[in-house]
Design a protein around this nucleic acid. Structure first.
Length: 503
RNA sequence: GGUUCCGUGGCCGAGUGGCUAGGCAGAGCUCUGCAAAAGCUCCUACAGCGGUUCGAAUCCGCUCGGAACCUCCA
């Protein structure tokens, strides 16, 4: 029996709004697509939250034994700047402002994005396709939609005919976002650039490039560039098939982006593209969505160094990761100094136990105390069932805190290792390590890797031991206090052993 | 204006018809040369008002407050 059979996964599907049992299209294999960043600027913390969410999803799917193909794109062209008449491209605009080639912009911010992913321990996807690398496919599907009568070209631009699609597909435009097409009509504001379109709800598949537009490709309709939504349809179906298992992205992409993806793909391929939609919620600051345009966004570097004006101090990447995992991905999460401080302490606690359990080994009784064995096993079980319950990292962390206490008990002797059977101990130990490191990605942060520093501290520790044995408390306290002052916390064990942690 | 969501103890944040969330902060105790760490104990909330129910923080209605989307946005 595989882990995914033992702990069947449920996912809140945005399409139905309900928690559903997850059954992949092909047993044992999962195809997942996530909308990646538009690389025209530094990624901020809000962006990072979304990628962290799907990092957790892909990690857990793999941990359960699924073989996962995870596709996350890089949008390096195509997002239209507001509703400007020219349909100005964000990357092209930025390039002009900075007097750079568009691809220089793309390169710079892609690298930044990758660096941010790395420091947060967000694993790379299986495939990371770019929009500019799939122009041909985007032209092809646009042509196909024209052939099927679901798109039309006007003056070198091509638009998707939403009304026609809706009429020919069971009024299904809006199934994801819960909008209905009449309301969209009435509520839409006057966009003065829309006279080309037959209907204000139509959206661009291909845009004609204005003479000054620098990112442009030849097409059957003249020189231009692809619309925003079409790239994701092309790249997801190319690598995952016309119907695939999971599509993820930020809540703010639900409409219109994902709604349009469904319409295009269904129109072109005759079947719905996605079986489970997952939307991660926003990171907020004082209750408001963190976004570049609102000016309340944090850069990861500002967070690590504490240079942002709202922060009292810097926080490590793992502290931030822990902080985000403490809430469910579908809830908004409010970002504040106080919350981060609490997270820092909580994370340190889990991290300390991680180090402790790694150093512990079973005292090896065949017959342990059955009650204790049962309690430990049930904690392990809860880790799985909580994660399988719609990736509930918050509940899983609560269990890990419980496990952390038991680990400390083992260390102090409150819970004698002899009373735990060998098999149970190993299961418990590897579960704690795996859920921390593999599933939640909370890698140990320590200086233990740094031999020179660790060795130096060990020398000081042995000096303190000697001083204490000699009852030279003035010296032993000085060693402890001076180390504390530079951020190294010594911890005296009952047995006289001394361990340390770094602030 | 339309659509949707949320309002949990000092703070953050899970949960969701009857069963302890958890973390941080605070109080007490144990351990300790003194501390720290750790362990134990305490602090028991669900915006307001009605209703449904044997029973509601959880379902329904209203009121108040906040947010997201409807336009580029993770």
């Amino acid at each position: 029996m595989t882990l995914y059979e033992k702990y069947p996964l449920t996912i809140t599907n945005s399409l139905s709004g309900k928690k559903e049992r997850f059954e992949p299209l092909t047993p044992g294999f999962v195809g997942m697509y996530v909308c990646g960043p538009t690389v025209y600027n530094f990624v901020h913390l809000g962006n990072a939250r979304t990628f962290l969410t799907f990092d957790t999803v892909s990690r857990y799917l793999r941990f359960l034994g699924y073989r996962v193909r995870y596709v996350r794109n890089i949008t390096d062209v195509g997002h239209l700047e507001s509703d400007a008449d020219e349909g100005e491209d964000k990357i092209a605009k930025k390039a002009r402002l900075e007097q750079l080639e568009p691809m220089e912009i793309v390169k710079r911010y892609t690298e930044d994005f990758h660096n941010v992913m790395r420091v947060f321990n967000i694993l790379p996807p299986s495939i990371e396709p770019t929009a500019t690398g799939h122009i041909v496919e985007q032209i092809r599907i646009t042509q196909e939609l024209i052939n099927k009568g679901l798109a039309y070209d006007v003056n070198g631009s091509v638009y998707f005919d939403v009304k026609k699609y809706n009429a020919t597909h069971n009024n299904s435009y809006g199934i994801l976002s819960g909008r209905n097409i009449e309301e969209l009509m009435e509520s839409g504001r006057d966009l003065d650039s829309q006279e080309e379109k037959r209907d204000r709800r139509d959206f661009a598949l291909w845009k004609k490039a204005a003479p000054q537009h620098i990112m442009r490709w030849p097409s059957p309709w003249g020189e231009g560039f692809p619309g925003w939504h079409i790239e994701c349809t092309v790249m997801s179906t190319k690598y995952l098939g016309e119907t695939f298992d999971i599509h993820g992205g930020g809540m703010d992409l639900k409409f219109p982006h994902h709604e349009c993806e469904i319409a295009q793909a269904t129109g072109a391929n005759g079947k719905p593209p996605v079986r489970y939609w997952i939307h991660s919620n926003m990171l907020t600051v004082n209750g408001q969505k963190m976004s570049k345009s609102l000016g309340n966004s944090f850069l990861p570097s500002e967070l690590f160094t504490g240079s942002h004006k709202l922060l009292d101090k810097g926080y490590s990447p793992m502290t931030v990761r822990f902080f985000m995992l403490q809430s469910h991905y579908s809830s908004t999460l409010d970002f504040s100094n106080e919350a981060l401080q609490a997270a820092e302490k909580g994370y340190k606690k889990l991290n300390a136990s991680l180090r402790t359990i790694k150093a512990l080994s079973s005292a090896g009784g065949e017959t342990g105390d059955t009650e204790i064995d049962k309690a430990l096993i049930s904690l392990v079980d809860e880790c799985y069932s909580n994660m399988s319950d719609d990736f509930n990292t918050a509940k899983t962390l609560a269990v890990l805190f419980e496990m952390s206490s038991r680990i400390n008990d083992m260390k102090s002797g409150n819970l004698p290792l002899k009373s735990v059977s060998a098999g149970v101990f190993e299961t418990f130990k590897s579960a704690y390590i795996d859920f921390m490191e593999k599933v939640l990605g909370l890698e140990e942060e320590s200086v233990q890797d740094n031999n020179l520093l660790d060795g130096t501290i060990q020398v000081l520790i042995s000096l303190r031991k000697k001083a204490r044995a000699d009852k030279n408390f003035a010296l032993s306290d000085k060693i402890r206090d001076d180390l504390k002052a530079i951020g190294v916390q010594l911890k005296d064990g009952k047995d006289g052993e001394i361990t340390y942690s770094v602030e």
